[in-house]
Design a protein around this nucleic acid. Structure first.
Length: 588
RNA sequence: GGCCCGGUAGUUCAGUCGGUUAGAAUGCUAGCCUGUCACGCUAGAGGUCGAGGGUUCGAGUCCCUUCCGGGUCGCCA
């Protein structure tokens, strides 16, 4: 018995043909004298029929069939009667009149439904992931993932990029995320780290002269999980030599455009819009703004500075700002209780409070009206272009807090009033450029790299490196899709002196820099081309292109929030013998 | 590490003010049924109410602790 073809590939053109199909029993319907089986494989579903009057013995055998049995059936493709056509099925006009049946393997009653309509709890789905993956929805997601990777590979291959693998067992570089460590048996007491990204290796490949590199690279970061963050994830990792920012953006716009064309048949307008980091923060309160809708931030610090409301005035006096967003027509959509809830919401972003003002025809309601002169209130409304029915939300704080809180509030309000749902099928791509090179880490009391320590500062800002490092902008860029960071990259430092300068700014002693990145600095001594690159989060890209809410839905075997795998039980304890070999002892 | 939501039959859920033997749908098992397509009809089996402790005459329900899952802040160069 040899399979003729996948179930859902047969059509009316095959009527009369004798075929063999194999797959899983999606559903059986035994009507007494006639039995229908919906047979499923990765292509879809095909109906098989067995008649007791045609072949009693075969019918008896078919009656043994239960859901999720794996069977092989042979028969003749037949047209269904006019009344029996199922318009909801791709193969709804045909069926297989079976004359042979083999039960290849039985199935116990499945613990979860293999059905897209089931709405099963995710924990149960993950425990029985191999069953969950039988669902068409999941098959589709992984098929799309495959096609997206193929599309990217095709583009990169055609554009002279070489796919090169880099080590998984690498050297720990404590900057950045927490490393996953792997003990060395041969060198007791020492550890490999799993790569957070192939960053240093791809730069070394540029030193080696490969000029254009890519890799569908697995990356590992031991940090807490989110809906869009897994401890191991995949990047489309790219690096190029003898290029500037423009060159890299240009190639990658073409890459992304090809993927959108291939996968969704959508033409991406090129060149993609660009926005500086500064502008993104000022207008949207985010370095990954969702530009699909307005409700932009409005700076009202000038009015606030002159008013009698102390919360507003002192924020400006302390070097911060007062900004607002205008929730158009929301004055009657939010109850006091809901506004209070938004107040709690912004507190999670360290805002001290949320001031609000509901614009009326001639009388306004607000949380702070009594502190303001009417003309000051009017000035706020005018600057916010407020009209009766609008609801203004104010945050007064340091710029960073105001941006963070208002940027997130903007998204929260948009979610609540349905804007995000309305625009989810549109794809708004943009580049965010000119990121700050450094930020100040309050905990560590030192500067840390915003992107990574190999990012080149902008030439225009080099003079600020010693005087005002926080003002230095980097040759760094992120690609943002609908408010999600799809990828980011930079032009790298390719001169030893500049790299040393950078390490110095980050507070590394010569010795530390040598210890951590010495091999890179050494490599840079022997002729390094100017180079730069980018990495895209493949999981996020697939998630957005397939409209899923979590990257878990586009990863075959994902981990849950505590970084464990519900199916395999990893991580797990190991034999004492294994630990002994590694010279490792658990402590309480 | 903090905060929020959830955990009752294989699955999805209901369970009122703390009160009789914890229900429904679906799935499962059996019987009937010759054109169904989430077939239909009849009957049946199926429960550590996540776990432990407490309050009470009595706890799925109230309290405490804990485990598990999700979201989120911190974290994620």
């Amino acid at each position: 018995m040899k399979r003729t073809a996948y179930c859902a590939t047969f059509t009316e053109n095959d009527i009369g043909r004798r075929v063999t199909v194999m797959g899983w029993v999606q559903k059986y319907r035994n009507l007494g004298g006639v039995l229908f089986v919906d047979l499923r494989d990765r292509s879809g579903i095909l109906q098989l029929t067995f008649h007791s009057e045609r072949n009693t013995e075969l019918f008896e055998k078919a009656s043994q069939i239960r859901n999720e049995y794996v069977i092989a059936a042979t028969g003749v493709i037949a047209a269904r009667g006019p009344k029996d056509i199922n318009k909801n099925m791709v193969t709804g006009k045909i069926e297989v009149l079976c004359d042979e049946l083999r039960i290849l393997s039985k199935s116990e009653t499945p613990p979860i439904y293999v059905d897209d309509r089931a709405n099963t709890n995710e924990a149960a789905r993950l425990k029985y992931r191999y069953l969950d993956l039988r669902r068409p929805e999941m098959q589709q997601a992984l098929y799309m993932r495959h096609r997206i990777v193929q599309s990217a590979r095709e583009f990169l291959n055609q554009n002279d990029f070489l796919e090169i693998e880099t080590p998984i067992l690498t050297k720990s570089t404590p900057e950045g995320a927490r490393d996953y460590l792997v003990p060395s048996r041969v060198n007791p007491g020492t550890y490999y780290a799993l790569p957070q990204s192939p960053q240093i290796y791809k730069q070394l490949l540029m030193v080696s002269g490969f000029d254009r590199y890519y890799q569908i690279a697995r990356c590992f970061r031991d940090e807490d999980l989110r809906a869009d963050r897994q401890p191991e994830f995949t990047q489309i990792d790219i690096e190029m030599s003898f290029v500037n920012t423009e060159d890299i953006m240009e190639v990658n716009e073409r890459l992304i455009a090809k993927i959108f064309k291939d996968i969704l048949n959508i033409e991406i307008p090129r060149p993609l819009p660009r926005m500086t980091y500064q502008e993104a923060m000022e207008r949207f309160g985010s370095d990954k703004p969702n530009i699909g809708f307005g409700m932009e931030l409005v700076n009202v610090s000038d009015i606030a500075a002159a008013c009698d409301f102390k919360v507003f005035r002192s924020a400006v006096e302390n070097g911060g700002s007062v900004r607002l967003i205008n929730a158009k027509g929301c004055a009657d959509k939010y109850s006091r209780k809901e506004i209070d809830a938004l107040g709690e919401f912004v507190k999670t972003f360290n805002a001290k409070g949320l001031a609000w003002l509901a614009v009326g025809e001639d009388q306004h309601k607000s949380s702070f009206a009594k502190f303001l002169k009417p003309e000051e209130t009017d000035a706020f409304i005018r600057k916010a272009q407020g009209e009766p029915g609008d609801l203004l939300f104010f945050i007064a704080d340091s710029d960073n807090t105001v941006f963070d809180a208002l940027g997130n509030l903007r998204l929260e309000v948009a979610r609540k009033i349905g804007i995000l749902e309305d625009i989810k099928d549109r794809f708004n791509l943009l580049w965010v450029t000119e990121f700050p090179l450094l930020e100040y880490d309050e905990e560590e009391k030192r500067y840390v790299a915003k992107h990574h320590p190999f990012t080149s500062p902008m030439d225009e800002d080099l003079h600020l490196l010693d005087t005002d490092p926080l003002k230095v902008r980097a040759k760094a860029y992120d690609l943002v899709l609908n408010g999600t960071e799809l990828g980011g990259g930079s032009i790298r430092i390719h001169r030893t002196e500049m790299q040393n300068k950078m390490f110095e700014l980050l507070g590394f002693s010569q010795e530390e820099a040598e210890n951590r990145f010495g091999f890179l600095l050494e490599a840079f001594k022997y002729g390094t081309p100017p180079h730069g690159g980018i990495a895209f989060g493949l999981d996020r890209l697939v998630m957005l292109l397939t409209g899923r809410k979590s990257i878990r839905d586009v990863i075959a075997f994902p981990k849950v929030q505590n970084a464990s795998c519900l199916m395999s039980g990893a991580p797990s304890k190991v034999d004492q013998k294994q630990l002994d070999e590694l010279k490792i002892r658990n402590v309480e």
